[in-house]
Amino acid sequence: MAQPFPKRKLTDERFAIILLLPLIIALFALNLYPMAYSFWLSLTNTDVSRGISKFIGFINYYNLVFKDPYFWHSLRVSLQFTLEASLLAVALSLTFALILNESFKGRRIIRTIAILPWAFSTYAVASLARYLFARSYGLFSSLYVYLGLSDTPVEVVTSESAIHILALLFAWNYVPLGAFFLLAQLQIIPLDLYNQARIDGASAIRRLKVVTLPFLRRPIAIILLLFTVFSVVETTLIIGFTGGGPGKATQTLTYWAYAKTFMDYEYGYGAAISWFLILIAMALGVLYYYVLNKLKL
């Protein structure tokens, strides 16, 4: 006898959709809609201070690349910052992970302290840095005087040093993330392999090379990708610490987009810079993907 078809039954599929619905709505409202809207803005000459908003096609993009006197400078600063910050962050992450993986007294406490920078909001890091690096009352300036390197307070943040200091701060903020990511991987390396290598007569450096690093190749590639993307779009740190200065020394493309949008109120032009940045980030992502696949990591 045929069973009557059950009505309004909560199937697995329906239940899954119900569970996903809040996320889908949030994603749409907070990500997709603003992205689409900002793309639309980039195709207009919207300027809130002048009260105009007209569709102009890709004129903004054309002006950015060919007319904007600061574009190439900002792009160069962006790339320099990204390169320096991401490589430094990866190198320090690896160092910290290797240290934290050793067993020593008080390891648990050190591990807890080591993750603290990750708990700082980027803006807090920037504010802290402002105090530490200030000319008249900053720690580093005072150190110069205290150590007798200078008689008067020094400007530590110069147009030469500013970008390096920013990279260092970025690394300080993100190293815990990278280090713990790598540490998790280090913990899964079988102890037998280290013991085997020791019995085979391998030195500590050799063991690092033949046992540890092969296990870390993939996670290192992943954090390098993450840090690259994070540093390409890093704005908070620059706004909070140098404000693009001294002069325009730390004016990255992101900062330029921010300045154009929220200081000059040229929403349309700012949106165009942002979309240009997205292209850069995507290009880097694709590049990494191909390189990683080529290397079979």
């Binding site: 037998d192 392999l193 013991n195 085997q196 020791r198 019995i199 085979d200 007569g201 030195s203 033949v210």
Partner: peptide
């Protein structure tokens, strides 16, 4: 004496082969 200086060989349950070699 550290293991590397004992001139011994060991076979582990997991075989402990170097995965990339």
């Amino acid at each position: 004496l550290p293991p590397e200086e004992r001139n011994i060989a060991m076979v582990f349950q997991s075989y402990a082969l170097y995965p990339t070699m």
